[in-house]
Structures are given as C-alpha cells and as structure tokens.
C-alpha cells in the first residue's frame, strides 16, 4: 500500500543542511494500523508528510497505492491527496469561518467526487460516525479540542480515502479525549482503512498492529 525506498530528506537551515530522514525503506500494507514513534526530531512528522505528499523526498521514492508521488506535479499531487488520503493534524487545522459540516464538505468540494446535492448528507453521516452530529452547524471556535479533532477526522474521511494519516492527533488533547480519538482511529482501521499514526506517547500504541521506531532519521525497528 505504502512503499518508501531509500528515502532521504534534507532541510537547509541557517546552521547548515539538516538530514531529517536518511535512507528510509518502509512498507506498510493495506489495513495495517501503524504507529510511528521516536523522540522529538527523529523524523516522524517528516516521514508522514512524505507519505501524504505534503513534502517531497530529497532522494528515493515514495509510492502510495498505484501512485509514485515524486513523479506527480503539485496540482496532481493535491488532487491525489484529496481522494487517496485523509490527514489529521495535532492542531486540527479546521477553517475557522466554516461550520463543522462545511469543513467536512470542503474536501468533497475540491475533489468533486461526490455530487453537490449529496455532500451535506454525507457530511452529517460522517459527523454522526465520529459522535459529533449535534455540532454540525457550529463554528470550530465554539467546539472543544476533542470535538474539533473528531470533526477533523470526519473531514479526513470525506472522500472515503483508503489511507488515514494522523500526526500527533492526541497531542493537544487531555488523556481521556485522546483515548477516545485513538479508539476512533482503531475502529476506522478495523473497518478497513490503512491508518498511520505518528505519536510520541507510549499509551497510543495500544490497538495498533505495528510500530515503526525512528531515531536520527533512520528506521531502527
């Protein structure tokens, strides 16, 4: 499903070049619930960004499903991302001027995969699935952190992507709410989604099917 070969990512910083990833080889199969762990600065988020097509490798190849990401143009990469992956961020990244339902409808709008007349109904279904149906017409600023993250997960599912990528989804939540979110991701994995979770919390590993540990930009286990 997800295949990385000899992936290196180097960033130019004022202090000089910094290698975030060094020759990473990794395969994640369809339906796996994979946790990527490691200390701060180990390259976890960089690895997730490469899988999401948010960033490009300095060397090596990243293939997700049938798509080889480094060969796609920016626009094709964005279109692919909208249909093939759902991304959940630590800070939710909901558009502040759109309601919860509208935030969920937005990826459908950009991808054009679902007929306009059906988008709201699907958005409400998704919000119900993540247990926040009554928040559909509220703006993000009026929701709690946990509710916002649930809306963000509903948004990630908008175009029914086979892959869900979550970058520290519990990092900004209290432990109880964080546990609820992890349970939700587990349910989605159980429903057939390939879920990749970046976390530095040991407790988040419960329920995952695989753990990949990074250290200094390398896969160590």
């Amino acid at each position: 499903m997800i295949r990385l070969r000899s992936v290196t990512k180097t960033f130019e910083t004022p202090a000089g070049a910094f290698a975030a990833l060094r020759g990473v080889d990794l395969d994640i199969a369809a339906g796996e619930f994979t946790a990527i762990v490691g200390r701060s600065g180990s390259g976890k988020s960089t690895l997730l960004n490469l899988m999401a097509g948010i960033d490009r490798p300095s060397a090596g190849t990243v293939a997700v499903g049938e798509a080889t990401l480094d060969t796609l143009s920016n626009d094709r990469l964005a279109s692919w991302r909208g249909r093939a992956v759902g991304i959940v961020f630590q800070f939710f990244q909901l558009l502040p001027t759109l309601t919860a339902a509208e935030n969920v409808m937005l990826p459908m709008d950009f991808a054009g995969t679902i007929r306009p007349a059906e988008r709201r109904r699907r958005a409400l279904e998704l919000l119900a699935r993540v247990d926040v149906p009554e928040q559909a017409d509220k703006l993000p600023a009026t929701l709690s952190g946990g509710q916002q993250q649930r809306v963000a997960i509903a948004r990630a599912l908008a175009n029914d992507p086979p892959i869900l990528l979550a970058d520290e989804p519990t990092g900004n939540l209290d432990s109880a709410t964080g546990a609820d979110i992890l349970r939700l991701l587990g349910e989605l994995s159980a429903a057939g989604k390939t879920v990749v979770l970046v976390t530095h919390e040991r407790g988040a590993l419960d329920g995952t099917t695989r753990t990949v540990t990074l250290a200094d930009g390398r896969v160590v286990s």
């Binding site: 279109s79 990244q93 937005l106 950009f110």
Partner: peptide, 9 residues
Amino acid sequence: MMKAIGATD
C-alpha cells in the same frame, strides 16, 4: 489547510 485536504494551486 485547504491544500492539505486536496485543494490544487
């Protein structure tokens, strides 16, 4: 945010 969820340039 929009580009992350699939908006093209």
